[in-house]
């Protein structure tokens, strides 16, 4: 396991304990006293580090190359997932995946950003940064869900919509805007879960839901910390500071009233145990669906409207 800057001491200590264990078996020496001492130290260290995580630490977890993606969670959460492709207009954008599936017996539509696991897949999926056809595919699936009265579950995990020539030519802004506009009118429950990075408009285009939940170490922001630092202070190296000032972590956003629930993460980040993480997501998804399933179409639309109407801060003089 590759350690991040802030939890390197933990990973190193874990490796050491493992080594000692192996050695004691191989050499047939009793090292249990030493091992126990180290384990105590590990527990203390873990508490110290994981209880005092800085926003920048969370940014790093959210960006961890092994962080579980939409397609990693789907097999744990759903049965019979059937992926469908294409926007019926221009192409099939693999930076967004979607399809129909069953959640505890209930047919649902699942949509999510999709990063790659290695360079080859990342090129195919454009590092999880969608083009307009990706958002149009997502919208097509949402409208289909609306027609067949299936709840929609969106997984948000993108650095942002792709900033490229072709994307602009095909109307990146229009595609994102259209999703925000149309999602407002969906007559079915919409539940959005930020599982990694929630990068700006490209993330929000899957984010107009009745509920927005976030994994503990995910981020949701108007721009990347690097981007903000370079615009505000002309220095991308001050990203760490920007991450703190911009309030992009789940606890910050909960306080701002942007998100509904923080989904607790496996110690050290979701990448340490996908299955355990999926169970935590499943629990909250189940609760959300149970609540929303009993609401009328009108209530769902009205509540979504009010949710977003209430966002923003201003002084009335």
């Amino acid at each position: 396991m590759v350690g991040l800057d802030f939890d390197k001491p933990i990973i190193e200590l874990k490796d050491k304990i493992k080594e000692l264990n192996e050695f004691s078996i191989k050499a047939n020496v009793d090292l249990s006293a030493e091992i126990e001492k180290l384990e105590n130290r590990l527990a203390k260290l873990e508490k110290e580090i994981y209880d005092n995580m800085k926003p920048w630490d969370r940014v790093q977890i959210a960006r961890h190359p092994n962080r579980p993606t939409t397609l990693d969670y789907i097999p744990y959460l759903f049965a019979d997932f059937f992926e469908v492709h294409g926007d019926r207009t221009f192409g099939d954008d693999e930076a967004i995946v979607g399809g129909i599936a069953k959640f505890k017996g209930l047919p649902v539509t699942v949509i999510g950003h999709q990063r790659g696991k290695d360079t080859k897949e990342n090129i195919r999926r454009n590092f999880g940064m969608p083009h307009p056809e990706g958002y149009r595919k997502a919208l097509r699936l949402m409208k289909q869900a609306d027609k067949f009265k299936r709840p929609i579950i969106c997984f948000i995990d993108t650095k942002g919509a792709y900033p490229g020539k072709a994307a602009e030519e095909r109307g990146q802004s229009e595609a994102i805007a259209k999703n925000l506009f149309e999602m407002a009118a969906l007559k079915v429950p919409v539940i959005c879960i930020v599982i990694g990075e929630g990068g700006s408009g490209g993330a929000l285009a899957l984010g107009v839901g009745n509920y927005i939940h976030m994994l503990e170490n995910s981020t949701f922001s108007v721009i990347s910390p690097e981007g903000a630092a370079s615009i505000l202070w002309k220095d991308a190296n001050q990203a760490k500071q920007a991450a703190e000032k911009m309030k992009i972590t789940a606890p910050d956003l909960k306080e701002l009233g942007i998100i509904d629930e923080i989904i607790p993460e496996v110690k050290g980040g979701a990448h340490h145990n996908v299955q355990e993480q999926a169970e935590a997501i499943e629990e909250i998804l189940f609760q959300s669906l149970k609540t929303l399933r009993n609401k009328s179409e009108q209530e769902l639309i009205e509540e979504r409207y009010r949710k977003f109407k209430n966002m923003g801060a201003y002084l009335n003089v």
Binding site: F82, G86, R88, F90, P107, E133, K137, F148
Partner: peptide, 29 residues
């Protein structure tokens, strides 16, 4: 499929099973 016009290409030997699954998905719940 690459150009966004199809939802999926389904081999003939899987056709019946896939169609059944999709039809079933639109009836249950």
């Amino acid at each position: 499929l690459k150009h966004g016009q199809l939802d999926a290409v389904i081999p003939r030997l899987e056709m019946k099973e896939k169609l059944h699954m999709i039809v079933e998905m639109h009836q249950s719940g």
